[in-house]
C-alpha cells in the first residue's frame, strides 16, 4: 500500500494517476489524499516524477471520462481521487472500455452523482452571483464590480469562463472563501480566497431589483416548495431579493381575498380610434365570411 499526496486539483490527480497506471499499480494498493496532515500519518509519497515513467502517454482513455474526472475533481468528497483511479483502472487495465455506458454500475453512478453535484453548483454560481458596482476605472472608463459567493465545491475555475464571456465589457472580481477570480478586460486570473468582509454588502440598484421581484410575484399561485427546491435557503443570505420572501408569502392570502372582494368592472365601450375601428371591421367581415361558409356546408 502506498499513500499518494496531491494538490486538490484535477491536473495533479491526472499526472499521478498516469504514472501509477503506467507502473501497473492496482487501485487497492493506493491511498489517495490531498490533505497534508493526513498524509503525514502515513509514509507520504509524492506522485512519481512524470518524466521517470515511459509509455504513460500511450494509455487511451475515453474523452468522456476525462470530462467527468475534471468535474469530479472539483467535488469536496475526500474519496473522489481513489474512485476516479479505480474507474480509470477498470476502463483501461480492467478492459471495461464500455464502463461509462453503465449508469447501473456503482462506481460510475457515484462519479456521475458527484459530477452532477458539481455541475449544479456551477450552474447556481452562474445564477446567484450578484455583482456590486464599486467604481469606475479612471484610466479606462470601465465600470468595476465585485461579487461575493460561497460555492459548495471547488468550482471557481470551472465557473469563471462563463463570466468572462458574459461580462467582457466590465471589470469584475468574484470573491469566495477559497479562491477568487478577476477579469480586467484582457486577462482572467485567480488569487487566494478571502473573507466575506472584503466584499461590498450592497448596491444602489438592489432596491430597484427588489421592486421588480415584489411585483413580478403572483400572490394567487403560491408554491413555496417549488421555489425552495430550485433556490435553497443556503443561498438566500447573499441574494438581495430574498429578504422579501417571508413578507410576500404572508401577504398573499390577504391580497387574493382583496381581489375576490373587488367589485367587478363593467366593460367600457371602444374609444374613438381608427386602428380599433379597422380591427373591428376586419373581425366582422371574417366572421361573416365564416358564417357564409358554414351556410353553404
Amino acid at each position: 500500500m502506498r499513500t499518494i499526496l496531491i494538490e486538490p486539483e484535477y491536473e495533479a490527480w491526472r499526472a499521478a494517476a498516469r504514472q501509477l497506471l503506467a507502473q501497473g499499480v492496482a487501485p487497492e494498493e493506493v491511498l489517495w489524499t490531498d490533505d497534508r496532515q493526513e498524509a503525514s500519518l502515513f509514509v507520504g509519497e509524492s506522485p512519481p516524477d512524470s518524466a521517470a515513467v515511459q509509455g504513460a502517454s500511450a494509455i487511451k482513455v475515453p474523452a468522456a471520462f476525462m470530462d467527468l474526472a475534471r468535474s469530479v475533481a472539483a467535488h469536496t468528497d475526500a474519496r473522489r481521487w481513489g474512485l476516479l483511479y479505480r474507474v480509470l483502472w477498470r476502463l483501461t487495465r480492467g478492459a471495461e472500455r464500455h464502463l461509462l455506458a453503465m449508469a447501473t454500475d456503482r462506481d460510475v453512478r457515484q462519479l456521475q452523482d458527484w459530477g452532477k453535484a458539481v455541475g449544479r453548483d456551477i450552474h447556481k454560481m452562474h445564477a446567484f452571483v450578484r455583482f456590486r458596482l464599486v467604481g469606475t476605472d479612471v484610466a479606462t472608463g470601465r465600470e468595476q464590480f465585485v461579487a461575493w459567493f460561497e460555492p459548495e465545491h471547488r468550482i471557481v475555475r470551472l465557473a469563471a469562463p462563463f463570466f468572462e464571456k458574459r461580462f467582457a465589457g466590465m471589470d469584475w472580481s468574484i470573491l469566495t472563501p477559497y479562491e477568487c477570480a478577476h477579469w480586467d478586460g484582457t486577462r482572467l486570473h485567480f488569487t487566494a480566497g478571502v473573507s466575506r468582509s472584503s466584499a461590498p454588502d450592497e448596491d444602489a440598484l438592489d432596491d430597484l431589483w427588489r421592486t421588480y421581484y415584489r411585483n413580478i410575484f403572483n400572490p394567487a399561485r403560491v408554491k413555496i416548495s417549488a421555489m425552495q427546491s430550485e433556490m435553497p435557503k443556503k443561498y438566500w443570505k447573499n441574494l438581495p431579493e430574498a429578504s422579501l420572501i417571508a413578507g410576500l408569502i404572508a401577504e398573499s392570502t390577504g391580497r387574493v381575498q382583496g381581489m375576490l372582494e373587488t367589485e367587478e368592472r363593467a366593460a367600457k365601450p371602444a374609444p374613438n380610434n381608427a386602428y380599433l375601428k379597422s380591427l373591428h371591421a376586419m373581425n366582422q367581415s371574417e366572421a361573416a365570411a365564416q358564417n357564409h361558409e358554414s351556410d353553404l356546408a
Partner: peptide, 23 residues
C-alpha cells in the same frame, strides 16, 4: 461579449437567476 465594450451572452441552457414564492 468578448472583444466588445458591451455585456451579454446567450446559447445553451437559460439560467434562472431567482425564484419568486409562486415557484
Amino acid at each position: 461579449s468578448r472583444g466588445s465594450a458591451g455585456v451579454g451572452s446567450t446559447g445553451g441552457m437559460g439560467i434562472c437567476h431567482s425564484y419568486t414564492p409562486d415557484g
